[in-house]
Design a protein around this nucleic acid. Structure first.
Lengths: 244, 244
DNA sequence: GGCCTTTAACTTGTATACAATCACCCGTCA
DNA sequence: TGACGGGTGATTGTATACAAGTTAAAGGCC
């Protein structure tokens, strides 16, 4: 959490509140009383309300008519649709990058990120998980830039940061198992394929690969569903997903 | 502008401010002093700031680091990318509707809207333009619902309401000419095709058609660019687009 | 005369006070 | 005993006052 000094109260409130909700502190559907919250996180109501507005646009909260906010409720379909949506957006970014041609320096940087991921995955038995999460997020961010369009980039960033659609969602070293490690390697294969398709100006292939890549998140999520229910409390956001 | 009574100050401020900006009152790149604005639209700073936050997420304003908001600046590429983005999102909605199957009552309602558009376009020489704009917006809204997913619907609504990507953008009876009327008829052909593809469960075709359909907006925009420059002042939003 | 520094005014960001609305509960009347 | 009405409490929405930071201008010094 870099430099909480230079952050505005509203930003701090956003992060605190998002964390509180993702951790399941406030169960899905529960109301969020403003005064109590502002006392709890030590920030006055004005920036807190800004934060709540922000989380409403993120979809984490819903604003009931003139009666404050409630924590949103998600079911399995919502998660899958959010993942599908991310795949479509990232697919568009990859396609446009291929069709229009991506800047060489950006491509080189993206390749470097992938090389670093290879390193992080190197000792399959004891891979560097936190490094992977960081680098993976970085690659997906690069994907938004490769098309060279501020509009596209902005949209990819937005989708990518949505709590339940993010490429980092439901990633947790809690579920480190052999099959999980294997899925990380498959993901890296996808990464390479997407970049290769962009370099070869194969727009359709780049788009299809990016969509397929997003679907890996589904597998991870399905795995979570059937794994130890105790994980619900340790994997951020999982507490908001109702069994349907 | 239905029932400004029951609206919160923040909503009123959003509408006023959006109107002010779209009309070109504040030129692209200019700063928006909060106090002056709040006096001008007669709403205190707190809800005004909410409105500004909202317009920032819409992309109409940009927030410079600790120095308030400026009116966003758009170029031709931004417009085209926003249109492409809408095509991709609506394409996804259409594809999912086809793949998953759309509810019959919704399909019937969508067909009814298209029938009404046919009527509005009937006398080619003197078609009912305002009715067309309303019905067109309604069809695109239905498109978001046909997939039967709240997540998808939400996203289509969001994109569809973005000022510069909306299917109603740059529609103006100012530019009523024979070629323009012809493009409305082509648009209606697309509408029919999309719905037929959904009914036939042809996801890929539905997606491709929806994408192509969005591209009609490009033609309209290109036409505007080369038309009478005086239109800049009469077509909402056009004033924000710089010549690049 | 030019540049740097300091100060002052303005602008945003935050906190708090106030207003209005909503919901719930209790009491009274039919 | 049940239902309706009034009132009271809490909670959100709005306005305003205050603080902090930024920018611009003016004056002094080199």
């Amino acid at each position: 959490m870099a430099e909480t000094n230079r952050m505005s109260q509203a930003e701090k409130a956003t992060i605190s509140l998002r964390g509180l909700i993702m951790s399941g502190e406030y169960p899905a559907g529960s109301r969020l009383p403003e005064v109590a919250l502002s006392e709890r996180i030590g920030i006055s109501r004005t920036p807190l309300r800004q934060a709540m507005d922000r989380l409403v646009t993120e979809g984490l909260l819903v604003r009931a008519a003139s009666s404050g906010c409630r924590v949103a409720r998600f079911d399995l379909d919502d998660i899958n649709d959010a993942i599908e949506l991310r795949g479509v957006i990232e697919g568009m970014a990859a396609r446009l990058a291929a069709e229009r041609g991506a800047e060489e320096t950006l491509m080189a940087k993206a390749e470097a990120v992938l090389d670093a991921i290879d390193v992080a995955l190197e000792p399959v038995s004891a891979l560097d998980f936190t490094a992977y999460v960081r680098l993976n997020a970085e690659f997906h961010e690069m994907l938004g830039q490769l098309a060279g369009s501020p509009v596209i980039r902005r949209e990819v960033d937005r989708i990518t940061q949505l709590p339940l659609a993010s490429p980092s969602s439901f990633l947790s070293d809690q579920l480190m198992g052999p099959e999980f490690a294997a899925s990380l390697i498959r993901a890296q294969d996808h990464h390479r394929g997407i970049l290769a398709a962009i370099a070869a100006r194969e727009g359709s292939r780049a788009e299809a690969l990016a969509r397929e890549h997003a679907r890996l998140a589904r597998e991870k999520f399905d795995y979570l569903q059937h794994a130890d229910p105790k994980l619900t409390r340790r994997v951020p956001g999982l507490a908001l997903v109702t069994a349907e």
